[in-house]
Computed example of a mutant assay.
Amino acid sequence: MPLFLKPVFQERIWGGTKLTEFGYDIPYDNTGECWAISAHPNGANTILNGRYKNYTLDQVWEENRALFGNDDREAFPLLTKILDAQDKLSVQVHPDDAYAKAHEGEYGKTECWYILDAEEDAEIIYGVNAQNQETLNNMIDNREFDQLFNTVKVQKGDFYYVPAGTVHAIGKGIMILETQQSSDTTYRIYDYDRTDKNGEQRALHLEESKEVIDLSQTSPNATPKALTRDDEHYTQLVASPFFTVEKWNVSQQVNFKKPQDYCLVSIIEGSGEIIVDGEAYELEKGQHFVLTSEDNAVQFNGELTMIVSYV
């Protein structure tokens, strides 16, 4: 049976209250992140149903790897979030696997964003305007951020792939679904001189940032594709070495063939049901679950929009 998950909410200086639109009872007025599918130690989800009810996802990963196709990775590889940016996030960069494992003891962080909602004229920062390492270092040291950062206008339904090493920031008034490697390592470059509730500025990581910024990542490069699997149509948002992410629009009925032994599913619009091996489960916007290797005959019914990810 699918593993339905209880979200974990994270308070953020830039967060708001829009996550209530997904039916969540949020704990803070500045709830920035819903960790929707997570086995990360900083926010592992609790399972809500079945024989693993009240286990956490990381526990099940460790105790029954067969549910995940006997995946031999050290840790659960993916993390799905919904972010509500009431204010702009810090400008930041994430390391790749090699740097993160050497310095942080976890995965690197390649991620991608599906824009769930965006205010008019909302924008993100993506990439830098520096042609070489010396110029980059000088611009960071001299805080020439207006010239350094590249901004991009966004709207609902847009998609962005953000490889490790890409300088990026989500702007004010944007809500996204993020699929990422299971990592919580962030190097901040600029935080608008903000202070937290204790009057303290958040730490910056300028030297680490200089070491991991990839100067070749200067503009968005995702090219979603319309594809067909077993006569069912869907959109492949990205296929990378770290994850594949798909968008499925269900109208009435879809017989869903899992693309891998296990996959992650987030319902972002609508309602309906999923029938797995003859057993039905109701679905609504804001639910997240894992289809395991035991879930074979899968059918979705209703009017649903969902994001599916897998490695």
Rank of each mutant, 00 (worst) to 15 (best):
G105H: 00
V298S: 02
Q181N: 06
L204H: 08
M139E: 04
Q181R: 03
P41Q: 01
I267S: 03
L79D: 07
N49L: 09
E104V: 02
G173H: 01
F76I: 04
L5A: 10
T179V: 14
Q287N: 07
Q147D: 14
Q10W: 14
C263I: 13
G16E: 06
N42I: 14
H103D: 02
E282P: 11
I47G: 01
D71N: 10
Y281G: 10
E134K: 13
V91Q: 04
E273P: 00
R188S: 13
T235E: 15
E33M: 01
K109E: 04
G302A: 06
I140C: 07
K210S: 14
V60N: 02
Y262F: 14
G272M: 08
F68Q: 04
R12D: 10
Y160Q: 08
W35S: 02
A39G: 05
N150P: 09
T56P: 09
E178L: 06
M139T: 03
I275D: 11
G15E: 11
L83T: 04
M139R: 03
A226T: 15
H168P: 00
K197H: 13
N45F: 05
L79G: 03
Q260R: 15
G286F: 08
P241E: 05
M1E: 12
L5P: 01
S38Y: 08
N64M: 11
K53L: 08
H288F: 06
Q236E: 08
A122Q: 01
E284I: 13
S293G: 07
V276E: 09
P27G: 05
V93E: 00
T31A: 08
K247L: 11
Y52P: 00
E104D: 12
G15H: 08
P95E: 00
S183R: 12
E11L: 11
D146C: 06
E246H: 03
H205L: 02
V308I: 11
I170W: 01
I47F: 04
V250W: 02
I82T: 09
D141K: 07
G199E: 02
T244V: 07
V162A: 11
E178T: 09
S240A: 13
P95S: 00
Q92H: 06
F242I: 10
F243E: 00
E246I: 02
I37Q: 01
E123F: 14
D191Y: 06
P7A: 01
Y262H: 06
Y190T: 08
D96R: 05
D58K: 03
N49P: 02
Q92S: 05
Q180N: 03
Y187G: 00
G272W: 06
E294T: 11
L116A: 01
G272S: 09
P259C: 14
V254M: 14
D25Q: 15
W61T: 00
Q155Y: 04
E178Q: 07
I189D: 12
Y234Q: 00
L227F: 07
E246P: 03
N129H: 10
D214L: 01
H205Y: 00
E62N: 15
I268N: 13
E62L: 15
A44L: 03
D71S: 09
E232Y: 09
R51T: 11
F68K: 08
N150D: 13
